[in-house]
Write a protein that binds this DNA or RNA. Sequence first.
RNA 1: GGGGGAGUGUCCCGAGUGGCAAAGGGGGCGGACUGUAAAUCCGCUGGCGAACGCCUUCGUAGGUUCGAGUCCUACCUCCCCCA
Length: 416
Amino acid sequence: MSGFKSDLMQVLSERGFIHQASDAAGLDDLAANGPVTAYIGFDCTAPSLHVGSLVQIMTLRWLQKTGHRPITLMGGGTTRVGDPSGKDESRQLLSYEQIEANKLSLRSVFAKFLVYDSGPTGALMIDNADWLGSLNYIDFLRDVGRHFSVNRMLAMDSVKLRLDRDHELSFLEFNYMVLQAYDFVELHRRTGCVLQMGGSDQWGNIVNGIDLGRRMGTAQLYAVTTPLITTASGAKMGKTAQGAVWLNAEMKSAYEYWQFWRNTEDADVRRFLALFTELPMPEVERLAGLGGAEINEAKKILATEATALLHGRTAADDAAETARRTFEEGTLGDALPTIAISLAALDAGVGVLGLFVEAGLVASNSEARRQVRGGGLRVNDTPLADEKATVSAADLVDGTIKLSLGRKKHVLVRVG
RNA sequence: GGGGGAGUGUCCCGAGUGGCAAAGGGGGCGGACUGUAAAUCCGCUGGCGAACGCCUUCGUAGGUUCGAGUCCUACCUCCCCCA
């Protein structure tokens, strides 16, 4: 597995980032001899990235740390077309305004993981709308389109999936791979970029880019894909009941993010420590080797380290401390989610069902009712037996009321 | 253009003789057991309501009927066969 000369390939391979590589030895040589410029493309289909994209971001981070230059390519252009890879139905087209809004919202996250400056390894943020938006159709077909064989395109997994299942693949989407391939060539011309990385579902698209590059006379280009991260139980990473585990702080607090990692399955601890923290590998091995209940210590470290990368060390420590107080001492931590309620309303008495809805712990009064019947709701750690109950100022403990759904989710109510 | 088939609880897949808030899975949430894990077992899984109950829901819009997911008409979308 190891035996790489370059720090880049050595690190990526030993930490489990590499799923496939087009010419690992060639890339290793290149990376050992000087800075390599590499990019990963990001769709602008949502206002935030979620943990599913974290592998890609970490890949770029390691790339930069080992002395190379990362490019985050925003798919401002390609998102207008829509990537059919891995989807068996086409998505709703997003409006240009939506795409722009998403793009702006995504940017902030990258700056936490990468250093953007003008130095030789300074990261670049580029938008493929810069060139895709102004393409001339005829010129594009003559220059780029002639290098694509429809025969081969039809054999691509992303296309075949749709055809085999009799699902529609629009001509629009059929062009996606052409545009992405062209991106690679264009980025090579503009920045000397020779490596494209991405999730394993992007393999076909990336290799197409390499191919197009050869036909259009670029230098040798390279591909590396990362494994699709699923939990040991087979579930896709990043989706929870509350929705995706978002990276933007306003959509997922540091505390909730910490909790997400804290609840990692035992069998995933080693893999996740390697992928989502920067702890040295010997330390990762030591932590992953902890048996029985001790593995919980490793999970806490995983949670704190992963949270620190995204939200900063202070917020991570704070989240860890809040969790410790909440779960190990049974007291309250100050990073728990909080809602405010007016003193007047409290004096009048507030129905518990509505309060749990307001706290965001349940979606509706009906759901709250059901949870009460199932014994899932607690006020100040006392199981709620009566759905008609109200809370008042008398329930304040040190100025707060603690609402809980299940063992793990807590929201504090404060007067304000 | 002609003929045939399909669209179901807005998470997904899927049964459904005119009485249906609609079978069954998966997923999710909660409970028990644990280590804030996994596995297992149990409960819940449209909204409002303290409650009898009321409202909304089966591609869309009309119609027949005491009553429509189910029957009729038109339309939309998709699939298959023929041209």
